[in-house]
Nucleic acid binder design. Structure first.
Lengths: 195, 195, 195, 195
DNA sequence: GATGAATGAGCTTTCATTCAT
DNA sequence: GATGAATGAAAGCTCATTCAT
């Protein structure tokens, strides 16, 4: 088995276990069981429990950023780009539920137990949004009084929270895609330069 | 010292400690130190560590709901009500930073370790928003195709995430009040019936 | 309420609680509840938890010794005295089940946690038996090769263990009185000088 | 070191520590020290403190039953069998003092804290006696009015209590073997069919 | 004398991490 | 590299005892 295989196997197992139990309640042996390796083996690939979590952030978000960027760069219209981002983000949460849960929860409390860790990947991810807005403003599509730094956080928060609750207890009133569309709709209309 | 004083003293200490360290990293003795009581005293007022967290949710959110409701019920215009909610929520996060952090973080991961606990208070809080939107739709102020169930989550998420990041690393580009105003602005414009 | 009343009330409560839960599992507050006094009140009458147990031994066994001695001294025939003792002991265990349990169990392990305590009352109680046997030997009713020091322990053990198990799970094959009679029968026949 | 070695090492250490301090006063770390393992190691072999005690009952009494049965089954005369049992039991108490103390004391109070645990091994052990008596009655050696269910408890109690006190404070008047012989003598004479 | 809130030492148990094999 | 038995620090919680009222 290639080295990278085991590294990845452990990481995927950790995502699953962290999603199920949360970082603190998850035991190393749970991850080892799930990855079908010995407890000690995990320490050949990661320094400690925190390191596994950080690796999830770094490596998995890294992949997402790449994916989403490629997709968005194929577009020209900032409106379409924003719609795409919303849809893509929310589909990710739907399709990779475990990863989504880990990112959402642990992200928010990571600063508590990993004082030194600055989640640059996450900032990068958010900056995709602000760059779209900025572009839209240059193209006179979005109002210039909209602050990209606020809007990026607001849009991310709106999408994330909606998806989080939807995942927690799916609402039969609407699909997650409809939700994404509603949210990008509100934001687009809210930010557009009026005719 | 009155009984209620000690209950409250411990609760406030717990809010502070949970905010600083997170629920799991916080030790009972940290809370006891902060509250200037003995470890054992905590167990005269709470059943266990989880119970302290749940009490924070129940009692503190309960107070917030009352406050915010009183404020909002004094208004008639749903637009104004939404603005007020946004401002109020974000000011709360600014003024009671510790409480805000506990509510934000532990709320999101509480379902992991307290399977049985349904955070009804939080749901109640969110429902304040959906009721405002619903009212606006009846008054033909908000578009009828906006789904209140989605919008409440989206608005809450937008506000919460923005405030969260602002608290984490205050952005000197804008004040938190401006942020609140931006967000309610986007949502209002985004949901309004066009002339 | 007279002082002695409360002292006695606590002692009776302790007997009940120790019997139910055992000395270690019993909490001071259990005894206080049962005696309908405050936890602190117990410490006005007893030095500590051990002291309550020792007082049970001293005071309650003291009463038993008096009772049983009075009864036995009314007799002349050592055979009859032994029968009486057996019956009396076993009836005590039946009628004062709680006290019996405490004496039986805690007696046996008291030396573990109260190194310094010599249970002189219990020794006194046992000596009632050896004196009967000795008397019987002087009267040439019991064989002289029977060692009173062994026989007293053997008889006590036989009675006590039988009663203990009978109390634990009453055997419908025989009454506890029949058991007492069987045992004293075996011991009498076993110790008598043959015709 | 073989797995079974550590299991057994801990069990032997526990017997020693429980005998010295009693179950409740014994700390896990005492057992760990005695067994020369880390505290945590104990939990690799036993579920909890109670489980150690139960294992002592199950495994150690199990061995005793086997030993004593083998010995007794080599005999034909119920009188001789009873003598053997008495001697064997009392020698066990003398030679494995620690085990004896644990069995004697904790056995008696085990029902207090382990409500669910039925000590079947102990019942099995006692039934060795009743079967001997029953056999003696069939062979017309023991009187038919002797109730085996009473006699087994009585004999066990007599032996056990005598040994217990002898161990506690050895009596120089007689050896423990003499005591065993006295007791079986009394019981045999007491139960025999008279010529 | 009586109370019971408060104390804090002490214990069982968990689990991340190590290291001999 | 891989294993998993062993480690031992760490923390939640209990409860006998105290003492201000």
């Amino acid at each position: 088995m290639r080295v990278s295989d085991k590294h990845s196997k452990i990481l995927q197992a950790a995502i699953k276990v962290f999603a199920q139990k949360g970082f603190f309640s998850a035991r190393i042996s749970d991850i080892a069981d799930e990855a079908q390796v010995a407890d000690g083996t995990i320490y050949l690939y990661f320094n400690n429990k925190y390191d596994i979590l950080i690796s999830i952030f770094e490596e998995e978000i890294g992949k997402l950023i790449l994916e989403i960027r490629t997709l968005i760069e194929a577009e020209d219209d900032p409106r379409r780009m924003l719609e795409l981002f919303a849809r893509q983000h929310i589909e990710l949460l739907r399709d990779r539920k475990d990863l989504a849960e880990v990112l959402q929860m642990e992200l928010r409390q990571s600063n508590k137990f990993m004082k030194e860790y600055r989640n640059t990947k996450f900032i990068e991810y958010l900056d995709i949004i602000s760059r779209i807005i900025h572009k839209g403003q240059e193209m006179k599509i979005f109002r210039s009084d909209v602050m990209p730094g606020v809007a990026k956080r607001a849009l991310f928060g709106a999408l994330d929270e909606t998806a989080r609750l939807w995942i927690l207890s799916p609402d039969n009133q609407y699909t997650i895609e409809e939700a994404a569309s509603q949210i990008s709709g509100i934001f687009l209309t809210g930010m557009e330069v009026r005719a």
